[in-house]
Computed example of a mutant assay.
Amino acid sequence: MNAPYLLPAMLALAVGTYALRWTGPAMRHRMRLSPRMIHLLDTGALILLAALVATTALPAGTDHLGLALPTGVAVGGVLAWRRVPLLIAILAAAATTALLRLLGVQ
Rank of each mutant, 00 (worst) to 15 (best):
I38G: 01
I90W: 13
P35M: 12
A74W: 05
T96I: 04
W81R: 10
P4Y: 01
R32P: 00
L86C: 07
T71C: 11
T96N: 04
P8Q: 10
I47N: 10
T17V: 07
T96F: 10
A95D: 10
A94Q: 09
L46R: 15
A89S: 15
L40S: 07
H64M: 08
A51D: 01
V105D: 11
P70N: 08
L6Y: 02
G77M: 06
I88A: 15
R83P: 00
L13A: 15
A57L: 04
T17I: 14
G61W: 02
A3P: 08
G76A: 12
L69E: 07
L79F: 11
W81M: 06
L13N: 09
A98T: 13
L99E: 06
S34Q: 08
R101G: 00
V84C: 01
Q106E: 13
A68L: 08
L87P: 04
L33V: 00
L7M: 15
L65G: 02
A50W: 03
L40V: 05
H29V: 11
T43H: 03
G104C: 12
L103Y: 04
G104V: 10
A50M: 12
L91Y: 07
L11M: 14
H64N: 09
V73W: 03
A54C: 01
N2Q: 11
A89W: 10
L20R: 03
N2I: 06
M27L: 13
R28W: 05
A51W: 03
I88F: 15
P4L: 12
A26W: 12
A45P: 00
I38T: 08
A45F: 11
A95C: 13
A3I: 13
L65D: 06
D63I: 01
M1R: 02
N2A: 07
A50N: 05
P85V: 03
G16P: 08
A80R: 06
G24A: 15
V15M: 09
L103E: 07
L103I: 07
V53H: 01
Y18H: 05
L52R: 02
L91M: 10
P35K: 03
L100M: 15
T43P: 00
D63K: 02
G16A: 15
Y5R: 00
L20D: 00
